[in-house]
């Protein structure tokens, strides 16, 4: 086990994250993202399970059109990179450990159910807004796009309201 190191100061971490995001704009012309990867996985998986329905679907159809592989995209490689980078960081800072986390008041099956429900809402929501906290909230706002800040208002507004209402689960 590596020696446990505390997390970085939040403003230092933010400054480094800002430089990584700037580098991404310089290299690619767009920012960082995340929800495009589960979207690509959903299209690829649906195309295996129900190819006819997937190819006829208005949203997923073009991603698998003509035998195209939706997984072969910049965002999929980026998210694979995110997992590798986070793995290295967790290992070197002594925080790599298999565990099931969640509200202290919830038992293991409750935690799994909450994580799954939250993921479903989030995956659906990211398609509604055509971007998530990374692609729209962070990268969109870094271009000073109105859309980025509209997203963040909805995200923090509803998130804080739900967070305060569920405060007792975390006692």
């Amino acid at each position: 086990m590596m020696k446990q190191r505390p997390i970085w100061n939040s403003h230092a971490a933010g400054a480094v994250l800002g430089l990584v995001l700037l580098l991404t704009f310089v290299l690619t012309g767009h920012g960082l993202g995340a929800s495009g990867a589960p979207t690509a996985i959903a299209a690829a998986a649906a195309n295996v399970v129900a190819p006819a329905a997937t190819q006829a679907n208005d949203y997923l159809g073009w991603m698998v059109e003509g035998g195209r592989n939706p997984l072969n995209s910049w965002i999929t490689w980026e998210v694979i990179g995110v997992a590798l980078g986070a793995l290295a960081a967790a290992w070197w800072s002594g925080h790599l450990r298999v565990r099931l986390e969640g509200p202290p008041r919830a038992n293991n099956s409750g935690r799994l159910a909450l994580a799954l429900a939250g993921g479903i809402l989030s995956g659906f929501g990211a398609r509604v807004s055509a971007g998530c906290t990374s692609g729209l909230g962070l990268s969109g706002s870094a271009t000073l796009a109105t859309a980025g800040f509209v997203f963040l208002i909805g995200f923090f507004g509803a998130g804080v309201l739900t967070g305060l209402l569920t405060r007792r689960m975390w006692k």
Partner: peptide, 14 residues
């Protein structure tokens, strides 16, 4: 844009 933010915010809280 707003509804997506709301769903992702609730999704994170849950």
């Amino acid at each position: 844009t707003l509804l997506g933010g709301v769903l992702i915010g609730v999704g994170m809280a849950i």
